[in-house]
Nucleic acid binder design. Sequence first.
DNA 1: GGCCTCAATTTGATCGTTCAAATTGATACC
DNA 2: GGTATCAATTTGAACGATCAAATTGAGGCC
Lengths: 397, 397
Amino acid sequence: MFEQGSGDENRGASMASIADVAVAAGVSRQTVSNVFNAPHRVRKETRVRVEAAIEALGYQPNRAAQALRAQASRVIGIRIESIQADSLTTVHDRFLHALAEAVQAIDHHLLVFAADDPDDEIGTYSRLHRTGAVDAFVLYGIDEGDARPAQMLRLGAPFATFGRTGHDVDHLWVDVDDESGGAAVAQHLVARGHRRIGYIGFPEGSSVGERRVTGLRGVLDKHGLLGESAGLDLRGQDEVANGARLAAVLLDRPDPPTAVVAASDTLAVGVAQAARTRGLVIGRDLALVGFDDTPTAGVFDLSSVRQPIEAVARCIVRALLPGLPAGRSQVPACAEQSTPQPPHGRLLAPTLVVRASSAATTQGRASSTATTQGRASSTATTQGRASSAATTQGIKG
Amino acid sequence: MFEQGSGDENRGASMASIADVAVAAGVSRQTVSNVFNAPHRVRKETRVRVEAAIEALGYQPNRAAQALRAQASRVIGIRIESIQADSLTTVHDRFLHALAEAVQAIDHHLLVFAADDPDDEIGTYSRLHRTGAVDAFVLYGIDEGDARPAQMLRLGAPFATFGRTGHDVDHLWVDVDDESGGAAVAQHLVARGHRRIGYIGFPEGSSVGERRVTGLRGVLDKHGLLGESAGLDLRGQDEVANGARLAAVLLDRPDPPTAVVAASDTLAVGVAQAARTRGLVIGRDLALVGFDDTPTAGVFDLSSVRQPIEAVARCIVRALLPGLPAGRSQVPACAEQSTPQPPHGRLLAPTLVVRASSAATTQGRASSTATTQGRASSTATTQGRASSAATTQGIKG
DNA sequence: GGCCTCAATTTGATCGTTCAAATTGATACC
DNA sequence: GGTATCAATTTGAACGATCAAATTGAGGCC
């Protein structure tokens, strides 16, 4: 089996080339080319004739020939991560899909590759760059202290990152404003009457986790609740089991919090497990909010801070644009509005999606359980801080 | 911000070409080419000199030039699906990663694209094929009655599918032997002492779902248990809520099953929810087995039938190989062993991963709950049927 | 020496496209 | 009439690699 088989029907029959179209339309190659790339140079009558020939032959310009001539492949590269066994958080696949759409909008293709480790990853970037297979790269999941951006600058390969390293390396980056997300959660919970709010986050060193709790604390401080929530801040790897373990610590205290914020939906699911084994009903006895708004959050009716992944993908493509071959397609919009932005970077505000797990107030509590409660959910942007001047400062288009 | 910025450092500085290497080594272009493609034609002394020049200049053959000359891009294309809000089952991302690795093994690249609907998808295949951007395609999630394979044959674009349509269209396909998976689950449960086994599957029309239940029933029949499990077979869309709803029907019967098999981990999670609200402990009061062995299954300690996704990806690449440019890399192994295989296709056996949700027997029942139980899990291949003649009939290598 | 053989290497042509420069043809202006 | 102007179109060259054919040089043989 699998001997030759189908698949090479028209190998050798070759696709129509620009020369074939030229002959069919009775013009030269260049005129056909102009119909695509500089229509104003072609007389209307001629253009119609050429377009008819293009249609008839089903002609499409050969990508390899264009790439060779233009010294640009119109391909964006990104590493595809392997799924993590213990995490339910899948922002990566949503980002890949969003990025595929974003690069298509500027007539580019998306090339994905697997890498075993950061060294293999950098090696692959280098190879893809030197072979001309890829024009620019997108690096996912960059956090403080990551060595890859500096290595990329050394390679000389154009790139942009989702996430930022800090202030030392200046490269193009786009990131979610996690601080604003944390603040939105705090505002939401405080408005619902919670005063003792627990936090279960990523280990020290994750600046994403730190920013989330910083935003949270900022609002609590503003309401004079920082003291009441003192000592309710625990950390662990992003796994369900850790969420459960750490939540147990919080819930078994003599003065347990009435609300818990988890740095991810994965951790939040663990919190829900721990609460359940203690007979607590999420949404009634304990408010719970996660981050990322993965399918998991929807399924378990958990409130969650939704990342603007699609906007991130568009902004990254937009950031790369100046280094790419002249975009013939219209420049796509990136994000609606924006607060003042740092150089080289772009911060996008996430959105809190409120579901049954945190919808009730501490006074009049919800009567039904979280899992059977209705699906009605409200959303609220975290960008209350956006000044009226924001639109004039943001990216045009 | 985002004005020019970094990213075009060496635009115009141009990478080293084969001519540069030739000059540096004091030979002609063709000799450099031969060092790569026909080393036996080059004198050892010359080869060493050329290799030194290659190393010094960091030369890598230009992909676009090779593609133009060879009329083959060495790129495989696949559609990236958007994540489904209500499903926790993510086989797709695992497959993408596996496919990326598999195509890299034969020195190809993986191009992913997003499509709005099947028409858009086919249109994109056509465009990618006609522009020469992609040599061959992989179609994911093909099931009985799917029109896409027939359309692809009409396009004349080489392709292989994960999943099969039936017997009418002959194209290259690779699929998981779901019947064997269902049978393995049944054997496992029967061996644990279960006699009334419920099934919650996909709606009619999903041949994947049908095959799973067919395998299940086959074993039950063999043990004379088909009558006892009659009427315990329910169907619904692949969502957690449906799993819970359908499980409620089974569990609220006067004679509830002692074990439930769900056609996916997503449905299984729903079953677990329904059981919990009724005070039943999964693994003690009710055995539960899902399909796909997604991270979800691991997190909730659910037994699940693991798909051999990595092997599927390798087999698909292997199936496409004859239609691709001569593979210079050694042909990668596809799968270890195989039962007699149908023409054009390849069936791979899944593996049952037994976890706490179904490890106990109906006699001596586990004492702790499923979620806190240890993580020790055993695996058993479903390929007990493999004859000794299998290796001689399977794909070599 | 002349000639054949064979290995090692070079030259020319080509893949399909597009830039730059050259050509054509029509109109206008002195 | 001669010629400058301009739009429309064509021709030549180049991007970087590799196939096919030609060339070079060394060795063997009569």
